[in-house]
Design a protein around this nucleic acid. Structure first.
Lengths: 250, 250
DNA sequence: ACCTGAACACCGTTCAAGT
DNA sequence: ACCTGAACACCGTTCAAGT
């Protein structure tokens, strides 16, 4: 028999097929439930073929995270297209970030895993390069928002700080709030009274007030803005959340 | 032979011995390097005896995390004893948090692992209860600081927010900053110009300014305060950091 | 050139056998 | 009553054998 030769398109299609399967397993059995044996059993390929596409299990997780980040980049562009002040656009980014995490909790957990564990070491170099590229794609439009707001005198830059650092502050409080309140915080004592949607918005409002980003939180109806965001730019995410029956308080 | 019976003190001493050993392995080989086989080989006990003290590997990690949290509680009390305004005390808490993480990076990583993975499910119930207890011990004095500052009109509470929520905002940005910038951020593109010490202080200053916590960042010399904290309340941590040759920029 | 799956090394957990 | 370690189940990775 003449050996079959695959085109790059065929290879990529198969890779996507494998990733789809991995995603399904994680959705069903959680991240720890993802096993190469299980993956291969569900796939019309052998272990060797899977390892021909990915250098390790972590490489698979990285590739899945890569997809997730691409989705986030698209979501943030949508958030920034929200009709409103620069501060409202910034708020929209965080509301979008939260809705995405609510709609796809597994993806959010995966983003943490990839940051935490020794995934960086075990993933292929090509995969890591792709990550840097997509991270830039995510951050650049956000940096631009902060820069424009600064140039228009809508926010104040503390001495010694750059706009990138302001944007990073927002990113930190967003990520920190979601990690601390997402997932299994069932009855963890003092945290029961905290609701992720409310705390995230509160924290972002405080932080942006600290930047003197006009209008200050007390000077505009940000609750109304959020409602408008949900229908005007995040209808897709809201539909998924509603369909999944996830509670929402904001 | 008459079977040996151990007193609770002996049992606890042995448990601490096991935890010390686990801590050493993690310090040497990282968190993934911790193996029951390795642990038992280094210990004068068998696998069965280890499993008599801990329900699972995750239970061991939880117990280690428990120790770490106890240390944090003690450190925060020290931070709050810093001579200064309420805002300076709050800043001291975060400076302490950072110095602790710098001095004991493994402990910090472990705190994340425990929050991320399915540790909650596999740890024993007793262990989980102990966690709630120690978490309360950590947070209560911090809540009190915020409450006192509020009662003294040193900070402004946005309408609809409680002091606990303000404290939680600070916790979130602290945790988020450290996760995003600690560990393997080697050359990750846009993050290279970000330094964890600087960003954490900048972010906390912005957030506390948003609370209108007097004195505002621009109205006092917080850099001098930080220097004073290092010598007056965090000498121990600074010594460890210096001894380990870890770079510090603040 | 590419795929296959048996084989390997390793790891967490258990439990029948000991004392 | 408590300890022991062989045995088990499982999992990521490799690679000689195939086509």
């Amino acid at each position: 028999m003449s050996p079959k030769i695959f085109s790059p398109e065929e290879k990529d299609a198969r890779e996507q097929e494998m990733l789809d399967c991995a995603r399904d397993i994680i959705k069903a059995d959680g991240e720890v439930g993802l096993t190469i044996d299980k993956l291969v059993k569900k796939l019309p390929y052998s272990k060797g073929t899977v390892y021909n596409h990915f250098t390790s299990k972590e490489d698979i997780l990285m590739a899945l995270c890569h997809r997730h980040m691409t989705q986030m980049a698209e979501l943030y562009v949508r958030a920034l297209s929200f009709e409103g002040t620069s501060r409202e656009k910034a708020l929209a980014v965080h509301v979008g970030s939260l809705l995405q995490a609510k709609a796809h909790p597994d993806d959010f957990m995966m983003a943490i895993t990839v940051k935490t564990a020794g995934c960086h070491d075990k993933a292929s170099d090509a995969r890591m390069q792709a990550h840097q590229h997509i991270e830039g794609k995510i951050l650049t439009p956000i940096f631009n928002l902060f820069r424009t707001a600064y140039e228009n005198n809508e926010l104040t830059l503390p001495e010694g700080m750059a706009v990138e650092q302001l944007a990073f502050s927002s990113w930190s409080i967003d990520f920190g709030t979601q990690i601390l309140l997402m997932g299994e915080n069932r009855g963890c004592g003092l945290r029961t009274q905290l609701i992720v949607e409310r705390e995230l918005v509160n924290s972002i409002n405080l932080l942006h007030d600290g930047m003197l980003w006009k209008p200050l939180a007390k000077d505009y109806d940000w609750k109304a803005s959020i409602q408008r965001m949900k229908t005007e730019v995040f209808a897709k995410e809201m539909a998924i959340i509603k369909a999944a029956g996830i509670e929402m308080t904001v």
